[in-house]
């Protein structure tokens, strides 16, 4: 739908960063900051975002930004928030942006601590379903059946045998006021969710699907398309939870068969070409169907 020029203000995450061609994460970050505005301090764990945005002397960040180590972004954020309280600077808000490896796996204890303490931090997980910064190893966020470098498809393997950790539910179980999922394919929805989160206090969590052309291995111009297919297949349900209850979902106009999503990504090629994988393919479809039912995604 064409619209009038936005006349938007200068970006808070500027050009010259070293993300790969078509990086969904880089796109997400610019829009996250557009939604938060400039009165934020951003904390990031080690990962793709840290690597491509912090070569010494060349920072794209126009907000104060801190990276410390891999597994402690939530605790760093807690410390920053505590200092802001102590200094009566609470109008400045704290936002953490990390990848799924940092969030689902290595920083999970730190995240849980931050959530349980009720610290005033918006934690955003940019989820591309593997450790992309090190070449695409399996994480707790890797989807069922995806091939990764540490769990490849092979003669006796169909990729990941476990389902993706349901982190939004786990975060919600901490009793936090706001949990949402979003996708770079729907930037307006993403920004609206960040804005909504910024109106609330305490720990809040947004998980953004950020397709990765380099490791999912699809042409770089299809980043948003891949995001749309994920959402419209039901594999990436978009919803909001207020105080632990689903308050809103993004309805699907047309349900896309999962094969349409899987066939364009190398990490799922074994499901497409192998006869022996038909059962797994059906299991992935069933998972999408379960999501559609659970979140009532069909209009």
């Amino acid at each position: 739908m064409p619209k009038k020029p936005t006349g938007k203000t200068e970006s808070l995450f500027v050009s010259g960063h070293r993300a790969c061609h078509g990086c969904g994460l880089a796109l997400a970050v610019r829009h996250i900051l557009e939604a938060t505005g400039s009165n934020v301090i951003v904390v990031s764990p080690t990962g793709c975002l840290e690597t491509f945005s912090s070569p010494y002397g060349f920072s794209p960040w126009r907000v104060p930004w801190i990276h410390h180590v891999f597994e402690n972004a939530p605790a760093i954020a807690s410390g920053v928030a505590a200092a802001l309280r102590a200094q009566h600077r609470e109008s400045t808000r704290v936002v953490a942006i990390g990848g799924d490896g940092a969030t689902f796996d290595i920083g999970f204890g730190s995240l849980s601590g931050m959530l349980e303490r009720g610290d005033d931090v918006l934690y955003i997980c940019a989820d591309n379903g593997a450790y992309m910064n090190t070449g695409g190893q399996r994480s707790g966020a890797t989807p069922f059946c995806a091939a990764t470098t540490t769990h490849p498809a092979g003669k006796t393997s169909l990729g990941k045998t476990e389902r993706k950790k349901d982190l939004p539910e786990i975060v919600a179980a901490h009793g936090v006021p706001y949990v949402a999922t979003a996708s770079v394919a729907y930037l307006g929805d993403l920004k609206q969710k960040v804005k909504k989160a910024m109106t609330l206090h305490g720990p809040r969590y947004i998980q953004i699907d950020t397709p990765c052309p380099s490791v999912w291995n699809f042409p770089s111009h299809l980043t948003l398309e891949m995001g749309r297919l994920g959402v419209n297949s039901g594999l990436v349900p978009l919803f909001e939870m207020l105080d632990g209850k689903i308050s809103k979902v993004k309805k699907l106009r047309v349900k896309v068969p999962v094969i349409e999503y899987l066939k364009q990504q190398k990490r799922f090629q074994h499901l497409v070409v192998k006869e022996a994988s038909r059962g797994s393919l059906m299991a992935v479809q069933e998972q999408a169907d379960r999501n559609i039912e659970k979140y009532k995604l069909m209009a």
């Binding site: 500027v14 010259g16 960063h17 070293r18 070569p55 002397g57 060349f58 920072s59 794209p60 126009r62």
Partner: peptide, 22 residues
């Protein structure tokens, strides 16, 4: 001189042109 603790001014990546990646 290098900065203390490798602290960097924000927005300086504009000095790094990525156009030649194209």
């Amino acid at each position: 001189k290098i900065s203390s603790g490798a602290v960097v001014e924000g927005g300086t990546s504009l000095n790094y042109k990525t156009g030649n990646w194209r």
